[in-house]
Design a protein around this nucleic acid. Structure first.
Length: 825
RNA sequence: GCGGUAGUGGCGGAAUUGGCAGACGCGCUAGAUUCAGGUUCUAGUAGUCGCAAGGCUGUGGAGGUUCAAGUCCUCUCUACCGCACCA
C-alpha cells in the first residue's frame, strides 16, 4: 500500500462515482424529516475564490452530516447570473454577456465539482435564463397587482460610471458600492417596491429568528430604523400653507425657537416669495444642489442655513417662530421639516449658537442648566418639563404622551411612527438584467404584460455602446409592441430589474426548479421551505437578507408560500484573509483554490479551511497550515491502511468483555470523539474543534498500533469510527479508506455513529487538588469514590500534608470528577 | 458620535455551565531514519528563577466579587465591523 494517499486519482474517481450514481439527487419524501441546507448562490465571475471554498465546505459538512443522520437533505446550487460585470466585459471585449456568463458558469461548475461538494445538480438554476426570469417577472406582476410595485419620479442615486441608478442600500459612503464612483442625484421616473409597507413586520419578526446572529438582527433593526414620535402641523403666518413636522420629542415643543425646512422642500419657494430674503434663499438652495450627499450628511460638515423671511405659529402657545432652511435637514426623512429645540438637541444647539438664535430650556433636572444663554451643549438627559404651561412638572416620558394626547384632541397632530427604511428602487438602466414586464400605451397608459405572455424575452442580438447606455433603447423589435389592453401601438419598459430581485426568491425555486407553469408548486415549497440552514458572507446582512424576507412575507400574504420567514438558521462566515488583509488582485495576495486543489487535493483544502478557524471568524490563510492538514490526512491513510487487512474479518458490533487498560482507553476515546464531533457540528458549527478531536483520536490510535498486541474489535471500532467522523470534512479519502476496510457500500450511506454511554464510563479519574484555589497536587482515584472520601483522600496526600502543616482547614469544596479545593489558613 | 464584536504563547486557535489556562495544528530546537533534499519517527517548546526537585508570574490595562475568574461586575485602552446631521 502506498505511503501517501494519491488524491490525484482518488478524488476524481469518487466524484465520478457520486455523479454517476446520482448520490445527491433528492425528491420529496414524506417518510423522512427534511433538511434544506443552502449556501448563497454565487455571481459567476469566472473563478471560485477562497471565500467560496469556505462557504461551500461549511455547507457540505452540514449536508453530509445531516444525510448521515437520516435527513432528506436538499442541497442545491445555482447562479446569480444577471449583473453589471457581464455587461462591462461585453463593452470592453465584445463578448456577449450571455456567452461570457455561461462560460464562467461552466468553469466554476467544474471547480465546484473538483471540491467534491454534494450538490443536487438536477436542480441547478441560473437567474439569467428565461425559464427562471419568467417567474421573476411573475413576481413583479404580483407585486404590481397588489400595489406594491409603483412608478414615481424621484431624486435617485445615480452612478455616472455605471450609468445607472442605485438603491440606497447600494450607496456606500456616498459612492457606488461596485465601482467607488461618487454618486450624484438625478430626477428620474423609476420603479419601486413598497418594502416600507412591511417595515413593522420585518422588524417584529426578527424576534422569531433565534437562529440568526444578533449582529445581523441588530444591523437590520438599525436599517429599518423605527422611531416613535408625533407629527403635527404649524400654520404659516400670512399664508394658507401649513408645515408639517415629525419629532420624537413632543415634550420639548415649548422650547421651539425656530423651524427648519430642508432646501429641497416644496414650501421653500412659496414662503420665501416676496420676502427680503428671497434672493439669499434661492442662492442657498442652488448651492446645496451641487454639494454631494457625502458632504451634506457627514457629521463633520458645518451646519449652515438661511432665514426664509417667513414665520410659523406654534400651535401649543401661539408663538411666532422664524422658518429657516438648512443643510442638516434631509428631504427624505420624516416630513423634510423639523421643529428646532436648541436647548435639547445638539444639532439645533450648534445651529442656534452660530446664527444667534434663542435657546430656551424646557426640560430641567436637579443638576441641569436652567439658563439657555450659558449652556455649552444641549441637555438631552431626563428631567421634568418647565416653561411649558399646563405641562410643567411632567417627566419626559409622561410629557410625550400628554402632549401627543393634547395635539390629537386639538386636531393639530397625532402620534406616528417613522422608519428610516425607504422603498426599494429596482429600475436599472442596463441591458443584462431581468426585463420589467410593463408596456406604455398612448391610449391606456401603463399596462402590465399579461401572465400568459411571460417571459418578456431579453433580446440577444444587441449592440453595446461604450456610453453604457442600455442597448434596449435601440432595439426596435424589443420596445415596439402592442398594447395588451387595446392592441394599439405601445412601447415596452426598457429598464431592467435590480439583480437583488432575482435573488430574493431563488431558494423557493430550488424546491421545484423545472416547473414551467408556476414559479414553484405549493406542495414542493410546503415540503422544503423554510431553509433550515443558510450560510453566506456577512456582507449580505442587510440587502439580500432583508429583500428575501420581504419577498417571503409577500408570497406568504398572497398564499403561495406557507412560511413567513425564509431562513430559520443563518450562519455568517468570516472572510478569508492573506497577510492580514482581504485577498485582492490589487494587493497581489490572492490564493487560487485551483492551485491549492492541484497541489494538495480537495480534501486537504476543505479540511484546512474548516480547521484553521471557527466559521464566523475571519480566517488567515497559511500555506504551512495547509501542509499540516495534508500531513494529517496522510497519517490517517497510513494508520488505516496499515491495519485494514487485520480488521476486515472482525465483525462489529462486538461484545466487549474484559479489556486491558490500553484497549479500554482507546474505546473510551473513540466514543468520547463521537460525542464531541457530533455536538461540535450540530450544536456549535465549530468544525475546528471537531477536527482537532479526530486528530486526537488518530494520535491515540497510532500509539495503540505501536503496541505489540491489539484487541482487534476495539481497533476496528476506533479505525472505522474515525473514518466515518472524518468523512463529511474530507469525503474522498474516507470513501477510499472505507472501501479498503472491506465495505461494499459507500460511506455516504453509513449512519452517523452513536456513542455508547457504557464506553464513556471510566474506572479511574484524575482529580486535581487545590489549596486555596491553587493546584498543588493530583491523584488518580476510582471514579466511584464519594465526595466525602475524596476530601479525605486529598488531605491524606503526602504533599498536601506537608503544605497544610500548621494550618487549619476551613472547608473543602469538591467538584465531582474534577477537583478538590481545600481552603486553609 | 452611536451600536456590535473581539483582544489568550513566535503564529492559527482551545478552554461549551465560574472549576486544572495554552487542547489540536503550524513554526522552532535537538535526536533518529533516509541521506542530495524532502518525507517519516522520537523528545522538547508560555515567561521567569533553579543543577534539580520545585517555586513564582501569566489570558490588553486598573480595580472588585468568589473557596475558585480568560469566563461575572465597574472603569479603561486597542483593533475590526456596521450605522452615522434620521429630527
Amino acid at each position: 500500500m502506498e505511503n501517501h494517499y494519491n488524491f490525484k486519482s482518488i478524488e476524481p474517481k469518487w466524484q465520478n462515482y457520486w455523479a454517476q450514481n446520482q448520490y445527491f439527487k433528492v425528491s420529496e419524501d414524506p417518510n423522512k424529516p427534511k433538511y434544506y441546507d443552502l449556501e448563497m448562490f454565487p455571481y459567476p465571475s469566472g473563478n471560485l475564490h477562497m471565500g467560496h471554498v469556505r462557504n461551500y465546505a461549511i455547507g457540505d459538512v452540514v449536508a453530509r452530516f445531516k444525510t448521515m443522520n437520516g435527513f432528506n437533505v436538499l442541497h442545491p446550487m445555482g447562479w446569480d447570473a444577471f449583473g453589471l460585470p457581464a455587461e462591462n466585459a461585453a463593452i470592453k471585449h465584445g463578448h456577449h454577456p450571455a456567452k461570457w456568463t455561461y462560460a464562467n458558469i461552466e468553469n466554476m461548475k467544474v471547480q465546484l465539482n473538483s471540491l467534491g461538494i454534494s450538490y443536487d445538480w438536477d436542480r441547478e438554476l441560473a437567474s439569467c435564463k428565461p425559464d427562471y426570469y419568467k417567474f421573476t417577472q411573475w413576481m413583479f406582476l404580483k407585486l404590481y397587482e397588489h400595489d406594491l410595485a409603483y412608478k414615481k419620479s424621484a431624486a435617485v442615486n445615480w452612478c455616472p460610471s455605471c450609468q445607472t441608478v442605485l438603491a440606497n442600500e447600494q450607496v456606500v459612503d456616498g459612492a457606488c458600492e461596485r465601482c467607488d464612483t461618487v454618486v450624484t442625484k438625478r430626477n428620474l421616473t423609476q420603479w419601486f417596491f413598497k418594502i416600507t409597507d412591511y417595515a413593522q413586520r420585518l422588524l417584529d419578526d426578527l424576534e422569531i429568528l433565534p437562529g440568526w446572529p444578533d449582529k445581523v438582527k441588530t444591523m437590520q433593526r438599525n436599517w429599518i430604523g423605527r422611531s416613535e414620535g408625533c407629527q403635527f402641523d404649524l400654520p404659516i403666518e400670512n399664508s394658507s400653507e401649513i408645515m408639517t413636522v415629525f419629532t420624537t420629542r413632543p415634550d420639548t415643543v415649548f422650547g421651539i425657537t425656530y423651524m427648519v425646512l430642508s432646501p429641497e422642500h416644496p414650501l421653500v419657494t412659496k414662503i420665501s416669495q416676496g420676502t427680503p430674503q428671497e434672493e439669499q434663499v434661492k442662492e442657498f438652495v442652488q448651492r446645496m444642489q451641487f454639494v454631494s450627499d457625502v458632504d451634506r450628511t457627514s457629521t463633520e460638515a458645518e451646519k449652515e442655513g438661511v432665514f426664509t423671511g417667513a414665520y410659523a405659529i406654534n400651535p401649543m402657545n401661539g408663538e411666532r417662530i422664524p422658518i429657516w432652511i438648512a443643510n442638516y435637514v434631509l428631504i427624505d426623512y420624516g416630513t423634510g421639516a423639523i421643529m428646532a429645540v436648541p436647548a435639547h438637541d445638539q444639532r439645533d444647539f450648534e445651529f442656534a449658537r452660530k446664527y444667534n438664535l434663542p435657546v430656551r430650556v424646557v426640560i430641567k433636572a436637579a443638576d441641569s442648566p436652567s439658563d439657555g444663554e450659558s449652556m455649552s451643549e444641549a441637555y438631552v438627559e431626563d428631567g421634568c418639563m418647565v416653561n411649558s404651561g399646563i405641562f410643567d412638572g411632567l417627566s419626559v416620558e409622561e410629557g410625550k404622551k400628554q402632549v401627543i394626547a393634547y395635539m390629537q384632541k386639538e386636531g393639530v397632530g397625532q402620534g406616528t411612527v417613522n422608519f428610516r427604511l425607504r422603498d426599494w428602487l429596482i429600475s436599472r438602466q442596463r441591458y443584462w438584467g431581468c426585463p420589467i414586464p410593463m408596456v406604455y400605451c398612448e391610449k391606456c397608459g401603463l399596462i402590465p404584460v399579461p401572465e400568459a405572455d411571460l417571459p418578456v424575452i431579453l433580446p440577444e442580438d444587441v449592440e453595446f455602446r461604450p456610453s453604457g447606455e442600455s442597448p434596449l433603447n435601440y432595439v426596435e423589435s424589443f420596445y415596439k409592441t402592442e398594447c395588451p389592453a387595446c392592441g394599439g401601438p405601445a412601447r415596452r419598459e426598457t429598464d431592467t430589474m435590480d439583480t437583488f430581485v432575482c435573488s430574493s426568491w431563488y431558494f423557493d425555486r430550488f424546491c421545484d426548479p423545472h416547473n414551467s407553469s408556476a414559479p414553484f408548486s405549493k406542495e414542493a415549497v410546503d415540503y422544503w421551505m423554510p431553509v433550515d440552514q443558510y450560510i453566506g458572507g456577512v456582507e449580505h446582512a442587510i440587502l439580500h437578507l432583508m429583500y428575501s424576507r420581504f419577498f417571503t412575507k409577500f408570497l406568504h400574504d398572497i398564499n403561495v408560500l406557507s412560511c413567513d420567514e425564509p431562513f430559520t438558521n443563518l450562519l455568517t462566515q468570516g472572510m478569508v484573509l492573506k497577510d492580514g488583509s482581504k485577498m485582492s488582485k490589487s494587493k497581489g495576495n490572492v490564493v487560487s483554490p485551483e492551485d491549492i486543489i492541484n497541489t494538495y487535493g480537495a480534501d486537504t483544502a476543505r479540511l484546512f479551511i474548516l480547521f484553521a478557524s471557527p466559521p464566523e471568524r475571519d480566517l488567515e490563510w497559511s500555506d504551512q497550515g495547509v501542509e499540516g492538514s495534508s500531513r494529517f490526512l496522510n497519517r490517517v491513510w497510513r494508520a488505516v491502511t496499515s491495519c485494514a487487512d487485520d480488521i476486515k474479518g472482525i465483525s462489529l458490533p462486538a461484545q466487549f468483555g474484559e479489556l486491558d487498560p490500553e484497549a479500554r482507553k482507546l474505546r473510551y476515546k473513540t466514543h468520547a470523539t463521537i460525542k464531541k464531533v457530533s455536538e461540535d457540528i450540530e450544536q456549535r458549527f465549530n468544525f475546528n474543534t471537531a477536527i482537532s478531536a479526530i486528530m486526537e483520536l488518530n494520535n491515540m490510535l497510532n500509539a495503540y498500533l505501536d503496541q505489540d498486541e491489539q484487541d482487534l474489535s476495539v481497533l476496528k471500532e476506533a479505525i472505522e469510527t474515525m473514518v466515518v467522523l472524518l468523512s463529511p470534512f474530507s469525503p474522498h479519502i474516507c470513501e477510499e479508506l472505507w472501501q479498503i476496510c472491506g465495505h461494499q457500500q459507500s460511506i455516504y450511506h453509513e449512519s452517523w455513529p452513536r456513542y455508547d454511554v457504557e464506553a464513556l464510563i471510566q474506572d479511574e479519574i484524575e482529580i486535581a487538588i487545590q489549596i486555596s484555589g491553587k493546584v498543588r497536587d493530583r491523584m488518580v482515584v476510582p471514579a466511584s469514590v464519594s465526595e466525602e472520601d475524596l476530601k479525605v483522600l486529598a488531605v491524606a496526600q503526602p504533599k498536601i500534608q506537608e503544605l497544610l502543616a500548621g494550618k487549619e482547614i476551613v472547608k473543602a469544596i469538591v467538584v465531582p470528577g474534577k477537583l478538590v479545593n481545600i481552603v486553609a489558613k
